[in-house]
C-alpha cells in the first residue's frame, strides 16, 4: 500500500511540474544551468566509460571466437549491437542515475531541509515547476546526444582495442559494423534514452522534494533515489524492448 501511495504522490507531483513557467527568462536561465550541471558535466565520465567498455567488449568477443569457422567481422558486429542496443542507452542511463540522480536528490533535498523551497513557495513561486521542469527538459533533450556519443565512442574503443593488440584487423571490424545495420536500432535506443532521461530527472526529484528531517535523511533519500531510479530503468528497459523489438 505504501508503494502505491508513493506512486500516486509521484504523479500528483508531475501535475504540478508540468505547468507553464511563471517567467520564461528565468526558466531559460535555469534550463541552461541544468544542461551544464546534468549534461555537460557528465560528458567526461560517459566518454571515458563507453570508450573502455567498447574496448573490453571487442577484446572479449575476439578471445571467445577463436573458432576458424566464425568470421572475424562478427567482433565488430557484436560490439556495435551491444553498444547500440544495450550498453549505451541502458547501462549509461544506470550510471547517470547514480551520478545525476544523487545530485538531483541531494540538491533538492538540501533545499527542502534548509527551507529554501519554503522560501520559494512563500514568494508565490511554484517550486516544483521552477526546480524540476528545467531538469526534465535538460535531460530529455540532452541525453540522446550524450548516449549517441557513448555509442560512437564505444565502437571506436572497440576498434582501437582490437587493432592495437592485433586481435583483428580494421577491415573486418568495419565490415562487421556495416553488416546488417538497421537504423531502427538507433531509433529504439534513443526512444529508450528519452524515457530513461525522464525517469532520471523525476524520481530523484521526488525523493529530494519530499524529504523530511536533516542531512542524514537527505543522504538516505539520495540512496533511495538512485536505487529506485535504477530499478525503474531496468524494468522499463524490459517492457520497452518487448514493445519495440519483439
Amino acid at each position: 500500500m505504501n508503494y502505491l501511495k508513493h506512486v500516486g504522490k509521484y504523479f500528483i507531483m508531475l501535475r504540478q511540474v508540468f505547468r507553464k513557467p511563471q517567467k520564461w527568462s528565468v526558466f531559460q536561465e535555469m534550463l541552461f544551468r541544468e544542461i551544464e550541471d546534468l549534461g555537460l558535466k557528465s560528458l567526461g565520465i560517459i566518454a571515458f566509460i563507453s570508450f573502455f567498455v567498447g574496448g573490453v567488449i571487442a577484446i572479449q568477443t575476439a578471445l571467445n571466437v577463436d573458432n576458424p569457422f566464425i568470421p572475424k567481422y562478427l567482433i565488430g558486429f557484436a560490439t556495435k549491437q551491444s553498444m547500440i542496443l544495450e550498453f549505451a542507452p541502458t547501462f549509461m542511463s544506470v550510471i547517470l542515475a547514480g551520478k545525476v540522480g544523487s545530485y538531483i536528490s541531494s540538491s533538492i533535498g538540501t533545499m527542502r531541509v534548509t527551507e529554501q523551497i519554503d522560501a520559494l513557495e512563500v514568494m508565490g513561486i511554484n517550486s516544483l515547476n521552477y526546480l524540476v521542469l528545467p531538469k526534465i527538459i535538460a535531460t530529455v533533450f540532452f541525453y540522446p546526444l550524450l548516449i549517441s556519443l557513448a555509442m560512437f565512442l564505444g565502437i571506436l574503443g572497440g576498434y582501437f582495442a582490437g587493432t592495437l593488440t592485433d586481435l583483428f584487423n580494421s577491415e573486418d571490424y568495419i565490415y562487421g559494423l556495416r553488416l546488417d545495420f538497421d537504423p531502427y536500432y538507433i531509433q529504439y535506443a534513443l526512444i529508450k534514452t528519452v524515457v530513461f532521461a525522464f525517469v532520471i530527472a523525476t524520481i530523484p526529484a521526488y525523493h529530494g522534494y519530499y524529504v523530511k528531517g536533516g542531512s542524514l535523511e537527505v543522504g538516505r533519500a539520495s540512496t533511495q533515489a538512485v536505487v529506485w531510479t535504477s530499478v525503474v530503468i531496468i524494468l522499463l528497459n524490459y517492457f520497452l524492448t518487448q514493445m519495440l523489438l519483439a
Binding site: E115, A119, V122
Partner: peptide
C-alpha cells in the same frame, strides 16, 4: 504571496 516577505530561521538563502 508576492505581497509577503519572510525571514526564515536559517536564512533560507539560495
Amino acid at each position: 504571496r508576492q505581497e509577503i516577505g519572510m525571514v526564515f530561521q536559517g536564512g533560507a538563502l539560495y
